[in-house]
Nucleic acid binder design. Structure first.
Lengths: 195, 195
DNA sequence: ACCTGAACACCGTTCAAGT
DNA sequence: ACCTGAACACCGTTCAAGT
């Protein structure tokens, strides 16, 4: 298990640390306003920093996202651990899926970045997304073992489902709960064939 | 009902018509290769045409997409009409949803464009997407009337669901059928509460 | 009427220097 | 060590002219 901390706040020169923090807070507001596609040059400019300084600290956009969201996303693992102790495996999975969708909607366009990074081992977000997927896998297999969730679904399919819900909910927020309800219901193991 | 034909092939000067056709075929292969985000300047260049010529024929990227896909997308309306005559309202909806997902996956990134255009009345794709949504609505309400589909879903939610399936399937094609199966199953009206 | 090449303001990325 | 401003090759869009 290679769970090394990605919280690598630089401990070097004082101005370097100051620039690092300024970039993070500027990026946070820029992403919140313009989505994850916000101009990086713009972020550097409003942070009062040369653009190359931004690139040195965060070589890619995904590195910046990891620095901003890694901690929160890794919180989904802790949430999963908690829920594993709850009485209803089915309800635990549903609750966690809802939380995961919320996390993936932190910024406009974020879901795309998350899904892309899961498919790209060189992405700085890759390990984080894999951890989220693994956290979901625990709850999924427990619910499958309990017999309430269809057994043909694997962790990757669950991740895709959550991502697609977040993607749609980002565009039509009014339908967020309904879309999630449909998907969670669709995961239920079929016991009847009435139609 | 404002269903005027959008097949407005220009009937003016001969070179204008030739450029129009060249742009269409070039755009088709460019979108197929690079997704709907393909460079428009590049398309004009390889079509052997000035970039402004492209913009005159197709003021926006969505206008180009409409010219390329409008006919095929409007085919979903015809398909819906056919399926309205089929014996099983439930199966008819499921079949049409599958077809709609396939249509939305014609080019990489297309689903995004379709969903955006549905929310934007000024888009050249707007009317086409609304027609698709309306086609789905017919099958939806028939199935709801038959009692097999949950009654709280409306046409917009169905469109969101189809779009999200297409979005996810574009990234993880191996799960396409499974994601669709989950969603279609989730639309089923709940008759039991076993859990 | 319809066309084209060049310009414009952007983008992410990389350069050559500065202290 | 760490920084910056300027350059590079792109993008979509618009310009001033051409025939």
């Amino acid at each position: 298990m290679v769970a090394r901390s990605t919280q690598a706040r630089p401990a070097g020169r004082k101005d370097a640390r100051r620039n690092y923090e300024r970039l993070l807070t500027t990026a946070r507001t820029a992403f919140a306003e313009h989505g994850v596609g916000a101009s990086l040059n713009d972020i550097a400019r409003t942070a009062g920093v040369g653009n190359v300084t931004l690139y040195r600290h965060f070589p890619t956009r995904q590195a910046l996202l990891e620095a901003l969201l890694g901690e929160s996303l890794r919180g989904l693992k802790a949430r999963s651990d908690e829920l594993l102790a709850s009485p209803s495996p089915h309800q635990a999975l549903a609750t966690w899926m809802t939380a995961a969708v919320e996390h993936a909607m932190a910024y406009r366009g974020l879901v795309d970045a998350l899904v892309n990074s899961l498919a790209d081992p060189t992405s700085e977000l890759h390990a984080t997304c894999q951890a989220v997927k693994a956290a979901g896998a625990q709850l999924l297999t427990r619910a499958q073992h309990a017999g309430t969730i269809r057994p043909d679904i694997d962790a990757s399919a669950l991740f895709s489902l959550i991502a697609s819900a977040a993607w749609a909910a980002e565009r039509t927020p009014a339908y967020r709960d309904q879309l999630l309800a449909v998907m969670i219901d669709g995961l239920r193991r079929r016991t009847d064939e009435p139609m």
